[in-house]
Design a protein around this nucleic acid. Structure first.
Lengths: 239, 239
DNA sequence: TTCGCCCTCCCCCAAAACAGCGAGGGTGAA
DNA sequence: TTCACCCTCGCTGTTTTGGGGGAGGGCGAA
């Protein structure tokens, strides 16, 4: 496998790329530079949507979608609870569905070795950056050890690009909440009832209601729960 | 500021460190190597807890906690919605509370320049890795441009360590929601009432309630609003 | 097979939230 | 000064949730 990589150059090219086709070119170029079989960037939305780009065969990608492997793929499941990059060997392949998945993946040309880096963005965004290859354990360990830092940076930059392309939830700068409203919404998000919040803030429950309604109005929310959800996803409150 | 950094060496030392005191040593060493004023790693928990380590004065740290600046700090608020590292100059400092915070920070020796990298881990974990310094804009831009990749890696490795020290903040936390529960929570977060959700999912309202209660239980939430807030901050649902 | 978990449905009643109508005083900007 | 917004407090209802019981079938793992 590759001996020396000019990572800076790759990252600069990636940064300058502005089309999906360009990304595909870059990912293939990176794969060739690293001299490995596959590189994949895989975005997983918790709503179930996914977007991927990489060097897997179309057959395998289609198969993955058709079989809804998203729910059984041990790489996804394992990485979802982790922060560290992980070698595929260290994942849990014991379940029956995992073994079926593995056999299917191998049959479609996915290498016997793999290394995945979980990445997370705002609003619960989750993605994986994976490299895979066909080789023995020792060779693979040498590879991952040597390039783990480069791979982390690559993962970071690929995700950056993905977020650039994603129609970012409109940066609507809605009116901000007043300090008191922030207090109220924060306490509500912490599970306090209206009565508890009123007591905590040492105001009457009636006053409290005015704040909630005002915040609800500002956020265009249908009820308190909705208002909390909007305030959180806009980063107006931190809980 | 620093001319050449042997990042590999730093990261290896950091990886080998196993005590909080050791981390503090490393962070100070790194600051000296970069020849800047401050480096801070700041963990923000979804419960509102925070843990930090860095080179700020104890006075400022205490002040930050006392004033609950977590809720007003534009760096926190700004980074919470971003994936990209961000220069402090590009944040929104227009609100009154932000200006008060800024003045207070300056008075406590925080530099006029700053650069923060948001980091996210499993279960909605969120942290910031920040560097700050006192210098003019041009010098700072040169610094951040030159070292942004090193800083990303440092952020990543510091967060790794933090997660190592904090294996799992709650054993039950890792429990995920069932698909149906995700549906329910998502629709509730979108402002639907129970009746509307039940109609949308074509199930009885009674069934619906079972899901809500089950989700509430799994999330350790006190009521529906709380459950929504927790599910969101853990990235289990996206709205 | 048993056990655990997921999905589905039903009852009742108390507690909480929502919705509408009010009121007044403070502050900061145009 | 006016105007907008923030903070505070009150009343009377209706609607929605929450908590306590239940029941049964399905599916996958141990």
């Amino acid at each position: 496998m590759a001996n020396r990589i000019n990572l800076d150059r790759i990252l600069k090219i990636l940064e300058a790329t502005s089309t999906l086709e360009g990304i595909q070119d870059v990912i293939e170029k990176v794969r060739d530079l690293f001299e490995i079989d596959h590189i994949v960037y895989h975005w997983v939305d918790s709503a179930g949507d996914q977007y991927g780009c990489g060097t897997y065969s179309d057959d395998w990608v289609q198969r993955y979608l058709d079989q809804e492997y998203l729910r059984t793929d041990p790489v996804i499941i394992g990485c979802y609870q982790r922060f560290h990059p992980v070698d595929w060997k260290r994942l849990d392949w014991s379940s029956k569905s995992a073994r079926i998945f593995l056999a299917d993946a191998q049959a479609h040309g996915v290498g016997n070795q793999g290394y995945s880096i979980p990445i997370r963005g705002p609003n619960g965004q989750f993605a994986l950056f994976s490299v895979s290859h066909n080789c023995d354990d020792a060779t693979w360990e040498k590879f991952t050890e040597k390039y783990s830092r480069d791979l982390i940076l690559l993962a970071h930059y690929f995700n950056r690009k993905a977020l650039d392309f994603e129609p970012n939830r409109a940066p609507e700068q809605s009116r901000t909440l007043s300090p008191r409203e922030v207090d109220v919404m924060t306490l509500l998000a912490m599970g306090y009832s209206r009565a508890q919040v009123a007591e905590t803030l040492a105001i009457s429950e009636h006053t409290l209601r005015v704040y909630i309604e005002s915040a609800r109005f500002k956020l265009g929310a249908l009820n308190t729960t909705h208002a909390i959800a909007r305030a959180m996803s806009r980063g107006l409150i931190v809980v």
